[in-house]
């Protein structure tokens, strides 16, 4: 969810590897072969991530909304608005960092947000492990 590098950046990198492999003379060196296998792994993981992205974002947004329900503090209200406006995981991450920085260390809302993050991570890993296609 809080992942750097956009899909198009990854695809360009994979394409570059495919081109280099096609241009290679003779047997690939150990290092070159590892590059090609990494590129393959990127395609598989990216496909799984893309397949689950929308549903995971919606689940996280709804779970965070429940976690903040009844918290009328200004920082909670701001976070709720930011969660609604977030278009992807990185924007959600920005809002969460801001919210957690504003809350006391011992705080029931912080504990509930931790619970949401824990389940979000579990869901994201399950999605990455699921075969696509």
């Amino acid at each position: 969810m809080f992942n750097a590098l956009r899909s198009e950046q990854l695809l360009v990198g994979v394409g570059r590897m495919l081109r280099a492999a096609a241009d290679a003379d003779g047997r690939l060196e150990d290092y070159e072969r590892s590059q090609v296998l990494s590129a393959y792994s990127v395609t598989r993981l990216l496909a799984a991530e893309q397949a689950a992205a929308r549903e995971l974002l919606e689940w996280t947004r709804a779970a965070l909304d429940r976690a903040l329900a009844g918290d009328e503090r200004a920082e909670a209200q701001t976070a709720r608005d930011q969660f609604v406006a977030a278009v992807d995981g990185t924007e959600l991450g920005d809002a969460l960092v801001e919210l957690l920085a504003a809350l006391p260390r011992e705080d029931p809302t912080r504990t509930r947000v931790h619970g949401v993050l824990r389940e979000m991570i579990d869901r994201e890993l399950s999605a990455l492990a699921a075969p696509v296609g």
């Binding site: 590098l5 990854l10 990198g13 570059r16 590059q35 990494s38 590129a39 792994s41 990127v42 890993l125």
Partner: peptide, 14 residues
């Protein structure tokens, strides 16, 4: 252009 650097992104959720 080392694609393993980009691949590392997928190790972060774990």
């Amino acid at each position: 252009t080392d694609i393993r650097m980009a691949w590392g992104r997928f190790a972060l959720p774990g």
